[in-house]
Structure formats: structure tokens, C-alpha cells
Amino acid sequence: MAEITFREALKRALREELTRDPDVVIWGEDIVAYGGGGAYAVTAGLAKEFPGRVRDTPIAEEAIVGVGIGAAMGGVRPIVELMTINFALVAWDQIVNHAAKLHHMFNGQIKVPMVMRSPAGFGRTAATHSQNFDSWLASVPGLKVVEPATPYDAKGLLKAAIRDDDPVFFIEHLQLYGTRGEVPDTEYLIPLGVSERKREGRHLTVVTWGRMLVETMKAAKVLSGEGIELDVIDLRTLRPMDLSLAMQSVKRTNRAMVVEEGWRSMGIGAEVAATLQEQVFNYLDAPIARVAGLEVPMPYAKNLERATVPFSDDVVAAARAMMTNQY
């Protein structure tokens, strides 16, 4: 199997789906001409391969999402790209009040088979361009929210998202675009709403997703050298959230930790911890730990940014503390 980048895996998913289904279109800001295609080059070259179906749009996120919804209602399968997730705030009404509501509010008469793709996370871009809205999005009934961590998952999940009949918010962490991983040439899909064990271990269950999965895997190597074996569960889909593997895991390890990049308060970690204690409380030997981003508007300075976001060393430190009952 060839190793390709996360970015290339996404592009292959887009290309395959554009080829398979003439109703698939891609719209977004600067996805055609700019730098060859896309602020982060995911759509590079696709406009040439699929004339008329990959189009630049005005800078109007409320319309990019809203026009996408309308097209989806009418049977087109739009993939709309929001240049970064920070700009999704401009489209929040369309995402929450429209995309997520229509199927239910109109009693099943309307479907919105649309994917909203958007890069998230930090990269020396300061407070308004470095955010994660995982928990905000994942708290909305009617939305599906997906965030892959590996090129393999990115491709299979994006293809499944495009074929899904519901609105899917597909989050791509900026720091992952250049990461590499094995992706087969043959076609495959990964179902939405199914978590995966990314590493087997008997001491501590770590529930995570996206970039923090990568950091957790690095931490697991370090910890393994110290005799601490992490059981790593990658959520992959944040809504609907599949905690079945995490619960099974806790029954064996008796310890759990949630690792996320976003703000700690009201985060996904809070939801996972609450559900685990509801469901498997009797199996827990220690409080559930949370590793999360610090709650400050992201500063630009390199050292301050580095201090704000969790990395593998934060996971290592938290795991050590847990295993010595110092958490």
C-alpha cells in the first residue's frame, strides 16, 4: 500500500465521488483558481477535471452553506468548503437553523444530503483563525459531525459522508494535511458513527479524535517504554457519537482519559466523561481525566500558542499522574 498525505486522501475521495455521481458538486471560496485550487490545496486540479462542477463562490458563508442546502433539497449533492471553520460562524444560522432542522421540521419531506468541509485548529494564525467548534457542532440534533485523524480514515469517511443523506460537517485539522499514511488504491468506505480502537493496551483508556489521536499515539510510545499501555479509541464521528468501544475498554482498563484540542469547559471531553460515569461507573478505579486546550483566545506568539494547545507531552504527563493515582 502506498503512503499518501491526508490532503491527497481527501482529494482522492472527492475525485472518486465526482466521477461516480454527476449530482456531486463542490463549491467554496478560492477552490478553483487560487494557488491552483483551495486555500489548503485540497481541491487542486479538480476544477479542470470536472468542468462546471467545481466552482468558486462569493465570500458569503451564509450563502455558501444556504445555497448548498437548497441545492441538496433539490437532489444535488453539494460539498461546500468553508475556508476555515472560524468562518462557519457567519453561516451558523444556515448550519443550525436550516441544515440540521429541515428533515425533522418538515416531517421527513425534505432531505439535505450535503457535506460541509472545513479546516480547523491552530497554525500561528491568532485568536480568530485558530479555533475548534467540535462540541458546538456535535451538540446539534440533525447534524452529523465527522473528524478523521488518519489519511485512511479521511478518505473512507469523506466518501461515506458524501453518500450520506444527512448534512455532515466534516472537520479537517490543519496540522494533519501534510501527515502521511497508507491508503489502498481500491475503493472503500468507512461508515459514519463508528469509533475504532487505534491501539490496544491494558492500563488506560484514552478517548480522542482528530489531531489529538496523532499526539496520543506518540504519547503511547513513550508511555509504553515506561510500562504504561494505552488503549486508544478514535471516535472518528462526534455526532452521533459511538462510545460502545470506549465503554468496553473501560471495563478492562478501569481508567479513562479524554484528550481534545478545544476548550475544556463544555467540551466533548465533558460529554464523554459524563456518559462513561453514567454507564460504567462501577468499573472505574479513578476519576476520568481530561486533557484539553487552555481557555484563552489563541495568542499569536509561538511560545504562547504552544502552551495553549495540548501535545503528546501533556498526554504523557496526565497518563503518568493517573497511573500513580495523582490525578
Binding site: I69, M73, V76, P78
Partner: peptide, 24 residues
């Protein structure tokens, strides 16, 4: 395709629906 209750929220939807009809 429905009445919508967020002021202005349905306008982009109408544009998208028009696109779908052109597309098909």
C-alpha cells in the same frame, strides 16, 4: 418547500433550489 421563520434564512435555499433545477 416550506415556510421559514428566520428572517432572510430561506433566500439562499431558494437560490440553491433554482440551481438544482438548472442542474437537472
Amino acid at each position: 418547500w416550506g415556510g421559514y421563520a428566520i428572517v432572510g434564512g430561506h433566500l439562499p435555499l431558494a437560490v440553491g433550489l433554482a440551481y438544482a433545477n438548472v442542474h437537472h
